Amino acid sequence: MDNPANELIQVQIKLQKEFLDYVHKNGFDYGAYSASTPRSYYETYRKRLREIREQLAARMKTHH
């Protein structure tokens, strides 16, 4: 996979799969998700997902 955007998409898919696995194992806590504490699983997940999406959006802007 030589396209950096494709690599980011694969990282995003992996991250989302890990999130689903976490939720299946631990349940989903909307309160903890929407108001996550620093360094919690939810906060780390949301931060990483946001970073990936921002990188993908920046790539789309430079390639159109």
Rank of each mutant, 00 (worst) to 15 (best):
R53W: 07
T62M: 12
L49V: 01
A32I: 02
S36T: 04
D29C: 07
M1Q: 04
H24E: 14
N3W: 01
P4R: 10
R46V: 03
R53S: 05
R39I: 00
S36L: 01
I9N: 12
T37K: 14
Q55W: 02
H64A: 09
E51V: 03
H63Q: 15
N6I: 04
M1R: 05
A5Q: 08
H64R: 12
Y42Q: 01
H64Q: 12
Y33P: 02
R50Y: 02
Y41Q: 04
H64S: 13
N6W: 07
R53L: 11
L49F: 02
E51F: 01
L8T: 11
F28P: 13
T37E: 15
E43G: 01
I9G: 06
T44Q: 15
D21A: 12
L56A: 05
P4C: 11
K25Y: 02
V23H: 05
K17W: 04
E7R: 12
D29L: 03
N6L: 09
K14R: 13
L49G: 00
M60P: 00
R39C: 07
L20V: 15
Y42P: 08
P38C: 09
R46E: 10
K14P: 02
H24K: 11
A58I: 07
K25D: 13
E54D: 15
G31T: 05
H24G: 02
M60I: 11
P38I: 09
E7G: 04
K47S: 08
I9F: 06
D2Q: 04
Y42R: 00
E18L: 03
Q16H: 08
S36H: 08
R59S: 07
Q10S: 09
M60Q: 12
E18T: 03
A35G: 05
V11W: 01
P38D: 08
D29M: 00
G31D: 10
P38K: 06
N26A: 04
D29S: 14
L49T: 02
H64C: 00
L49S: 09
T37A: 15
H63I: 14
M1Y: 11
Y41E: 05
Q10E: 11
R53T: 06
I13K: 15
Q55S: 10
